[in-house]
Design a protein around this nucleic acid. Structure first.
Lengths: 223, 223
DNA sequence: ATCCTCAATAATGTCGACAATTCGGCAAGG
DNA sequence: CCTTGCCGAATTGTCGACATTATTGAGGAT
């Protein structure tokens, strides 16, 4: 009857380590080392690496081991682009299907987001942002699309911290979320899709800005 | 230097067996049996099952083995819905990026499709259909979206045979493809996205028809 | 007759060991 | 000085054996 928590599963441990940035892109993942580090057998680690490879978080080359997959700038833009069209679809669906409880949950998140923006807490806002979007996925009742979007999000997470750094981004993002929330509350599918689309177009722009800024900084501070 | 072909890989063998329908939905996949059947070790089969589980073609339950994942009617519709928005995006992109070679390839496929329709060869047409869409994915130059769409297609493949059975479907489908091709040739992104969207909306309708027909038939021929 | 218990069985999960492969350095040759 | 071939360390790929877990069926109690 003793079922150990999921956190003991090498897959979840490794996944967390990669997504949280403890393991860096292109870092080699030696099976034996990982096995000892997280207290598991090499077999379990191997299975976890296969899953993460299929998921796109790890790159697995035959006879050459595994490494944390490096998501290039261009690929990050692609990911965000796909996320945009999928979330737009989900927003439309959510508008017609969202329950009273769903709207209530969204309202709570909106209230907290306003607080964070007022307090100038960018990273707290960012976390609430994730919650907001996830709530919409749930409301849409579309497991297939939700799975894909969740996977994409985990791949692009490395870039999402940088987008929060843009001046005035939080305030603008908050206004966009208000529009999405209003459309959902009104059960207006067209408006919800349009608002979400506009929001994610902005996110894409911000991402381009972040990438560009990074390049400039790198050029100015060589070595 | 002897590199055995990919077909020897248990993953590809199993995948092919599932997608081609040799292994039926909900059929149990006993590791030892498969290992002997395809001449591989249990370890390799195990790794293949993990990959296929992550891919959505196999369902893996802890301590309870693997079975071919059964895609429900509702899930098939969800898959097609997601495929529609992704392919619409890819069509738009392809319109602005397609090369002369890409257009030439599409033209060739169109010619053959017209032949098949004229000959009343539904399944030959269906195969060309797949080629047509894949060519567009390639032209779009969007690996991230292409990967996702390819994965979705393999999951929904069981239903695609049924859609070809609808009377007059091939002729209508051909006209829709002509519209898509024309938009791509004109490098008109808006038109390409719209044409693809309309096409896949039709496919979705046909899928609903196929599922409905199946249910009626099942009721009329019980047991 | 029905339900419960419990052993028998079959399959999966895990571990250790060994074979196969890659990669680095190093020496010989051009 | 650069290239080529080879050896050895490190790592992955594979196999077999065993432990663990679910399932099944018989037998007995109610």
């Amino acid at each position: 009857m003793k079922r150990r928590p999921v956190r003991a599963d090498p897959y979840h441990k490794l996944r967390e380590a990669i997504v949280s940035g403890q393991l860096h892109p292109n870092e080699r993942l030696v099976e034996a080392a990982i096995a000892e580090r997280i207290g598991a057998g090499r077999t379990a680690v191997r299975a976890a690496l296969v899953r993460l490879d299929q998921e796109g978080l790890v790159e697995l080359e035959r006879n050459r081991g595994a490494r944390v997959r490096h998501i290039s700038d261009g690929e990050a833009l692609e990911i965000e682009e796909v996320r945009a069209v999928l979330e737009a679809m989900l927003a439309r669906r959510a508008a017609t299907r969202v329950s009273a409880e769903g709207l209530s949950a969204l309202r709570q998140v909106m209230i907290q987001m306003r607080e964070r923006v007022a307090a100038g807490d960018s990273i707290g806002y960012s976390e609430l942002n994730a919650t907001f979007h996830q709530t919409i996925w749930t409301a849409a009742g579309h497991p297939t699309a939700s799975r894909l979007v969740a996977g994409l999000k985990s791949q692009g997470i490395r870039f999402q911290y940088q987008t929060a750094l843009r001046p005035g981004r939080a305030e603008r993002s908050l206004r966009e979320h208000e529009a999405i929330f209003a459309a959902l509350k009104a059960h207006d599918g067209d408006a919800a899709e349009a608002a979400m689309r506009e929001h994610l177009a902005e996110v894409l722009d911000t991402l381009r800005w972040a990438i560009d800024t990074q390049h400039r900084t790198a050029r100015w501070l060589p070595g």
